Amino acid sequence: MSGIALSRLAQERKAWRKDHPFGFVAVPTKNPDGTMNLMNWECAIPGKKGTPWEGGLFKLRMLFKDDYPSSPPKCKFEPPLFHPNVYPSGTVCLSILEEDKDWRPAITIKQILLGIQELLNEPNIQDPAQAEAYTIYCQNRVEYEKRVRAQAKKFAPS
């Protein structure tokens, strides 16, 4: 494992614990031996107030490669969400998460999670990743928002 990646992720964890947006979660997972795995984080993004996503808490896994922060983490909703920019596998399609697009090593975990929260309610229809959600979003916004509200209710924190 890269010392650069681990040191950056340790800084990220410290900064997150000191200050993070209300309702968001970002925690490194534990290895079988109980030690912390900084390369694999369990996160959760709350649906934004005043949107059909409100009330939901959407679980996301963030996986970092050894060359982080040169390369972005892979962000994957578990379980996958109904959304035009979420692949059926759950992987998020967002330009700041793509090395050859808008990724920059200075982007923080907090910025990534806030960017994904923004994307939930403002899909990028130029870059669809899920045919069904994309089609319904474009053709029947009322039905799309109904499905999103049902999903938010399903993923409401207990």
Rank of each mutant, 00 (worst) to 15 (best):
A106Q: 05
R149L: 09
F64W: 06
Q139H: 11
D19Q: 01
P46V: 09
L9D: 15
I125M: 08
M1A: 07
P21M: 06
T35Y: 02
R141W: 07
P46A: 09
E132K: 07
P123M: 01
L113G: 04
K74A: 15
S158P: 13
K65V: 07
L6S: 07
P69T: 00
K154D: 12
A150D: 13
G90A: 05
W41D: 00
K18F: 06
M36V: 06
E132Y: 07
E78D: 12
I116S: 11
P80T: 13
V27R: 13
I112D: 05
N31C: 11
D67M: 11
A131Q: 14
L81M: 11
V142H: 13
A10D: 00
M36Y: 07
T135E: 11
Q117T: 12
N85H: 01
W53R: 03
G47L: 01
K76P: 01
D19W: 06
A5L: 09
P72A: 13
P69L: 02
L120R: 03
Q130W: 13
Y137N: 00
L81F: 07
P105R: 05
I125F: 10
T91G: 15
P21I: 01
L60A: 12
W16P: 01
W53K: 01
A129V: 00
Q130R: 10
G55T: 05
P72H: 05
I107L: 14
Q117E: 09
T91P: 14
Y87F: 14
F155K: 06
P123G: 00
P79D: 14
C93M: 05
N31A: 08
S2A: 08
Y68T: 06
K74Q: 14
L94S: 07
G34E: 09
S2L: 02
P28D: 05
K74E: 15
I125Y: 02
A152I: 04
G23N: 11
E145A: 12
W41L: 03
A156L: 06
E122R: 11
L60H: 05
P88I: 15
P32R: 15
R17K: 10
W53S: 00
G50P: 01
K153F: 08
C75D: 03
D33I: 03
A44K: 15
A131D: 08
R8F: 09
R13N: 01
I112R: 07
P28H: 07
K49M: 09
N124W: 09
V148A: 09
T108N: 14
T35W: 03
D67G: 14
K48W: 01
A15E: 12
A15M: 06
H83C: 03
D67A: 12
E78Y: 07
A129E: 01
W103H: 06
P52R: 09
G50D: 06
A156H: 13
G3L: 10
D19V: 07
C75H: 03
E122L: 10
L94P: 00
G23L: 06
K14P: 01
S7P: 14
T29I: 10
W53E: 04
I109C: 06
E122M: 12
V25P: 04
I96C: 03
P73M: 15
A10R: 04
I45E: 02
G56V: 00
E98V: 09
G56T: 00
K154R: 13
T35D: 02
R8K: 00
C75P: 15
L120F: 06
Q130H: 11
D19E: 14
F77V: 02
V86F: 12
P88G: 12
Q117H: 13
S7R: 08
A44V: 08
V92W: 04
L81A: 06
S95F: 00
S7W: 08
W53C: 02
R8I: 00
R147F: 03
T135I: 11
K18Q: 09
D102W: 10
V92N: 00
M62S: 04
I109Y: 03
A10W: 07
G90Y: 12
I109E: 02
V92A: 09
R17S: 07
F155R: 04
L113K: 03
L97A: 11
W16L: 05
E12P: 02
P84Q: 01
P128V: 00
V27D: 01
W53T: 01
M36R: 10
A131S: 14
P105Y: 03
H20Y: 03
M62Q: 04
M39K: 07
F22G: 07
L120K: 02
L114K: 11
I109S: 04
F155I: 08
L94R: 00
T108I: 15
T108A: 15
D100T: 13
L38W: 08
R104W: 03
Q130P: 00
G47E: 02
W41G: 01
G115A: 06
W16G: 02
G50E: 14
S95D: 01
Y144F: 04
A10F: 11
E132T: 08
K76I: 14
N40F: 07
S71K: 12
C43Y: 05
Q130C: 08
E54L: 04
D127E: 11
K110F: 04
S7N: 14
P79I: 15
E78W: 11
C43V: 15
Y137E: 02
A5T: 09
L9V: 01
N124Q: 00
A131L: 11
Y134A: 10
I125R: 03
R61C: 11
A152L: 01
F58T: 06
F82E: 04
